[in-house]
């Protein structure tokens, strides 16, 4: 029976470039890669928020007063700002998600850079609008 022999070049010791972190850091990034990186970061942040959300609702099991006491913590200016930043993550993730749907389903790959720019413009406008909506009451108090 004939045994299978490997070609000679299989004996060469090669260097495996398997460090994906250094690849990601050293490769030149364009709009598409930035969109993907921010999409991943905002996605992970939203999952982390989901756990915080469930945790913050857990006093509901101990009755109304316990829940209201807990909610007082989230009414402080610090948490208001954190919530505002959370909205920024939601905005980017949803607008870029729409961009990806357009890229995959409506030939958006021909104009994906414009789509990315527009998602930032719309996102920033909505972010400012939400800020006005969230802090208008506080601002009025501050001015008076």
């Amino acid at each position: 029976m004939e045994t299978e022999t490997k070609p000679a070049y299989h004996n060469i010791r090669t260097f495996d470039q398997k460090n994906w972190i250094s690849q990601n850091l050293s490769y030149k990034k364009d709009t598409g890669s930035w969109a993907w990186i921010f999409h991943r970061i905002s996605g992970i942040a939203l999952i982390a928020y989901l756990f915080l959300h469930v945790y913050s609702l857990s006093p509901l099991a101990q009755g109304e007063t316990a829940f209201n006491n807990k909610m007082q913590v989230y009414m402080t200016p610090f948490f208001m700002v954190v919530e505002w930043i959370l909205f920024a993550f939601v905005l980017f993730h949803s607008l870029n998600g729409l961009r990806i749907v357009i890229v995959d389903w409506a030939d958006g790959s021909n104009y994906h850079k414009q789509l990315y720019r527009w998602s930032w413009i719309i996102g920033i406008l909505l972010f400012i609008a939400m800020g006005v909506l969230m802090f208008s009451f506080e601002l009025k108090k501050f001015i008076q």
Binding site: Y27, D30, A35, W36, D104, D107
Partner: peptide, 26 residues
């Protein structure tokens, strides 16, 4: 394929690779 577009930037023949992949996905 997560539509990162690195392939389109890299292609020396200027093929819009992601467009072709999106047609296949559809």
């Amino acid at each position: 394929c997560h539509t990162i577009f690195n392939c389109v930037e890299a292609c020396p023949k200027e093929i819009n690779i992601t467009w072709h992949i999106s047609q296949l996905k559809k």
